[in-house]
Design a binder for these strands. Structure first.
Lengths: 346, 346
DNA sequence: CTGTTAGCGCTTTCAG
DNA sequence: CTGAAAGCGCTAACAG
């Protein structure tokens, strides 16, 4: 009796394997592999025959097997706090556009602004042997650093300009941007400022903006301590923060919201309460979302390269995987967008 | 001379393999595997020893290898037109919350509203042997259908209520929702309606809304043909569509925008032009994004279960993978949110 | 340019 | 409850 495989055959797996394509094309499996992955290394006649067989059979290569064998996976892990925030959505679009052009897939993780959740995601993503990892921010749990170090996987941290990135970095200086906003408010004639920023706990982007704000307040000799509020990103929270600040600090003449959604919510509340912007109150935002240009009055804000952060991060990763020379820190520019909400008649 | 492996050793791969953990725990590799994947099948003493060894070594299982061997991958492919549209972002959040709780990762693809791009993504995702696929809409390229059929992978189509889903479906009736909006506008006293909808080409959600609108126009005997415009989702496009409609059809007394962002853009334009809403013009939106409740005047719209579409899709997939009984079509409810933008004094 | 052989790291099956 | 052997589908290395 012929020795039978110990392993039962897969239940009617109708999937085409490389061997079948090879048989059909009259070549060996490895030639099919080469025709698909490194076509320039295969004779044209052979290649055409293989592609024909692929077409006829509807063969879709099993990347799991290919990645395991080659130790290269064509996936990139991306961790964002949440896709619901459009600044991260734009980054993902930038990543996706560049990566899918190069045949890579995105493995997406949402950390919910929790470093612990981020660490779990890093472990889960590393388990898939990604070609690279794109993280948000430069603040991570200790075990995240350990795992990343150990894995040797290329890492890009985004949105920050921390001095010592784990590996690569694409971002801008949140601190400098916030400083510039205050500088603009001062130039527009505002003196009694307030700040509304995302919760800074474990959020270096928010923390950078807070610090830039504080430094500018000190630098320009403005009212101290300036009222500061933390609020998660929503229109409602912006409206509520505005009301709260005006109640506790009625002499406030301008508020810097470290996010356009918060600022827009405040502008809508100003309309409901007939608070004159920019006359009674100046309002500035952050991000330059579309609403900043469209809302009435239009919103002064900081334009940041959301999409580009994603596309550049992807490019750096691809360059690294290609063993090309890459810088480690890409510092992008921001631009103050002066609009009606701080255009005070003096 | 001892036979040497033909394959060169991996360049300093510092990754821990299951074998090392096994040695450390004094068991065989398969026992480590079981302790991790099916702990209930392992003696507690053994399990503790294994977990200790895992901890000490920092072992992260190679899922590529595991998936290849077990033919189960713990990833789910998700294809959306774009993450930039917050309705899809909410769906992804719903998917992510449920899937990551069950140990699954999301492989994300963005089709850019192109069926051809979608088909390419389906091929790329299938190559990763996902446990399931979550698609947007029920309109797909022919080859997409062929590939899905062939693969046997569970599929959930979302956002639609097409009669014959490929496999499973979670959505609502875009047509009925649009009909209900018109019904509301009629009840509020509006008669000369217009529609602004996303480009309907290859977009069954937009097409459904268009059809619901047309049916309602006919049903209620309103002005025909009602002006219809296509506009991609943005505030600016909403403002421009408004202006265009009022120029060509000045007698229009209400506009239904099949998306809140378009509607909000129009409301902002109305403010700039001093067009009284709801007096001179009624405005209705679709989706019930946060801005609908916050904008002035607040926006009448349709609340749709964005997050739930994602979470339910994930649950259906998990149930199927668990061989549990599942329905094939989940039809969720929508709710008309009556707000100021259509509250006409009569 | 093409084929042979071995093996990626894990889990399946079957035996104890 | 635990282990031995085999093999998932593909590609690296080497030989021709």
């Amino acid at each position: 009796m012929a020795p039978r495989s110990k392993r039962a055959p897969r239940s009617g797996s109708n999937k085409v394997r490389i061997e079948e394509v090879a048989r059909r094309a009259g070549v060996s499996p490895i030639t099919v592999s080469r025709a698909l992955n490194t076509p320039e290394k295969v004779n044209e006649t052979t290649r055409v025959a293989v592609l024909k067989a692929v077409e006829e059979t509807g063969y879709i290569p099993n990347r799991l097997a290919g990645s395991l064998a080659s130790n290269r996976s064509k996936t990139v892990g991306v961790i964002v706090p949440t896709v619901t925030n459009s600044i991260f959505a734009d980054k993902i679009r930038g990543l996706g556009d560049v990566l899918s052009g190069a045949g890579y897939q995105i493995l997406l993780g949402q950390s919910g602004y929790s470093l612990d959740a981020e660490a779990d995601l890093v472990a889960a993503l590393l388990a898939q042997s990604p070609s690279g990892l794109v993280l948000t921010g430069s603040t991570h749990a200790h075990r995240t650093h350990v795992m990343l170090e150990r894995s040797g996987v290329p890492v890009v941290e985004t949105w920050t300009s921390a001095e010592f990135p784990i590996d690569m970095q694409v971002g801008f200086s949140n601190e400098a941007a916030a400083f510039a906003v205050v500088e603009h408010l001062v130039a527009a004639g505002y003196r009694d400022l307030a700040l509304v920023v995302a919760p800074v706990q474990d959020n270096d982007r928010a923390l950078g903006r807070l610090e830039g704000f504080r430094k500018a307040i000190a630098h320009f000799g403005l009212r101290q301590p300036a009222p500061e509020r933390e609020a998660a990103f929503s229109l409602r929270n912006g409206a509520e923060a505005l009301v709260n600040i005006l109640e506790t600090h009625p002499d406030t003449d301008a508020i810097f919201f470290a996010n356009d959604i918060l600022a827009a919510g405040a502008l809508l509340e100003c309309r409901r309460r007939n608070i004159a912007v920019p006359g009674r109150l100046g309002v500035a935002g952050f991000d330059d979302l579309e609403i900043a240009a469209e809302i009435v009055p239009s919103l002064t804000t900081v334009a940041v390269p959301r999409y580009e952060i994603g596309s550049r991060a992807a490019q750096m990763l691809l360059a690294r995987l290609d063993n090309a020379e890459t810088g480690r820190r890409v510092q992008l520019d921001f631009t103050i967008m002066e609009r009606e909400s701080t255009r005070r008649e003096r």
